[in-house]
Amino acid sequence: MKDFTFYSPTEFVFGRGTEHQTGSLVRAYGGTRAIVVYGGGSAVRSGLLGRVEESLAEAGVEYCELGGVQPNPTDAKVYEGIDLCRRAKADFLLAVGGGSVIDTAKAMAAGVPYSGDFWDFFAGRAVPGEALPVGVVLTIPAAGSEGSGNSVITKLDGLHKLSLRTPKVLRPAFAVMDPALTFTLPAWQTACGATDMMAHIMERYFTNTEATSVADRMCEGVMLSIIEETPKAMHNPDDYGARANLMWAGTVAHNGTCGVGCEEDWASHFMEHEVSAVYGVTHGAGLAVIFPAWLTYMAGHNVRKVEQWARRVWGVWAGADAMSVALEGVACFKRFLHSIGMPVTFGELGIANPDISLLVDKLHEDKGELVGNYIRLDRKATREIYELAL
């Protein structure tokens, strides 16, 4: 296990009706003038936005709205939000939604006190030293952004989808988490969210760091729970227990708990970011295509943890050699993804003829000539993985 410093200050307020506590929580963390960031009309139609804003008013918190955040959020909405924050003299960002909304609010929070272009942080030209506090009312369990210091934004000029990781600055002050708010999620979003959670765990699980038994068993346990609970939630959308377990799984999958002491990988996420930036696909669905291809490649190049994953998570025991066990694990993973309606090839994702050369060029332009850590992948390797996803 590697030496580590783990800092995770977010207060999680979990349970039915917890959105009614939002105003008092904003007040408790110093907010007096908030910008409420949300996505499409579902938060309005469901009445959630009204309940949240009523709670803010009761707590004496002034607020303005910034709606219209889209999936795969872009820099245009962040610039709009930064301008609104400055004009309103906001001192708090409240994200009501899922990962795209939360990531947009975080980027705004970092950009407001900064004299330059917020994109400097995502491009690696600057490091945020301060940010407005962010609170979350979670509606889509998937990205885990409610408990992480990460944000992913796409720059429209050039379609560069990049991530920012600042756990000491951008972790939310609090996250309100009511599983009942997810009862109305379409099956597609439920499945995409579960896939995203699995991917977040696997990015940490597939490590060359030795002596990580605690992290390994935590990762395996959460993955097994996701595999068990996702079909329940899809079969019975009002199953509070299944929804609660998935909501909490999404948080622990990405707040760092499962990766403490490990060198993490993240090549699959980087490769998918190019797919969703260029083709506009749902992130979780893109991961369902890329991760099995990455695992197939790894079965032939660094099989140790893939074999362990196949045995412990998928119960694969037949097979005399490690690679056959690993590949059967990949097959089990694909069958699970298909069972919840996820694609596992570019064609099933709706991309009949992906421009692999473009994806490879953009990936290495954005992330460097070598990506990932489980194996450092050059252009030849990432091209092979993209081709395995055809």
Rank of each mutant, 00 (worst) to 15 (best):
G47F: 01
C192K: 06
R125E: 04
V37T: 06
F336M: 08
D103S: 02
F346T: 03
W294K: 05
P237N: 08
E264G: 09
L156T: 06
A142V: 05
V306W: 13
G23K: 06
Q21H: 13
V52S: 09
T154M: 11
H301E: 11
G60E: 10
D321N: 05
G40R: 00
T382M: 01
P71V: 02
I226N: 06
T184Q: 15
P141L: 01
E53C: 15
T139Q: 08
L156H: 03
M323L: 12
M197V: 01
T104G: 00
R171K: 11
V281Q: 15
L170T: 01
W294M: 15
P237C: 01
V127R: 15
P141G: 00
A326G: 05
R312Y: 14
R45M: 14
H338C: 00
M247I: 01
W119A: 13
W188G: 12
C219V: 08
I385A: 10
S55Y: 10
D120K: 13
E384S: 12
T22S: 07
G280M: 07
E229D: 10
D238N: 13
I82N: 03
G68W: 07
D216P: 00
H338K: 06
V344R: 04
E272R: 04
W248L: 03
K367N: 14
A59I: 08
R204D: 08
K106Q: 06
V37G: 02
W266Q: 05
C332I: 01
V316R: 07
K168N: 15
E210N: 10
A175T: 13
H338L: 01
P167Q: 02
P172M: 05
M197T: 04
L94M: 02
A131G: 05
V13S: 14
F270K: 14
S42R: 01
T74C: 10
E365Y: 14
T382I: 15
S42C: 00
A211F: 15
A233W: 13
C258N: 12
W248C: 00
T139L: 01
V61H: 08
Y38M: 01
G98M: 07
S324R: 05
S46V: 04
D75P: 05
L224Q: 14
A123R: 09
G286L: 02
S213E: 13
T74F: 03
E62G: 15
I201E: 00
K161L: 03
P167D: 00
V96H: 13
T230G: 04
R87F: 11
H301Q: 11
W294N: 06
E58I: 12
H254L: 08
R165L: 13
L295A: 08
L84M: 08
P179D: 00
E274D: 11
L287E: 07
L25C: 06
V61W: 05
I35K: 07
R204H: 12
L56R: 03
L93M: 12
A34S: 11
G158V: 04
Q21E: 13
P172R: 01
M323N: 14
F174K: 00
F336G: 00
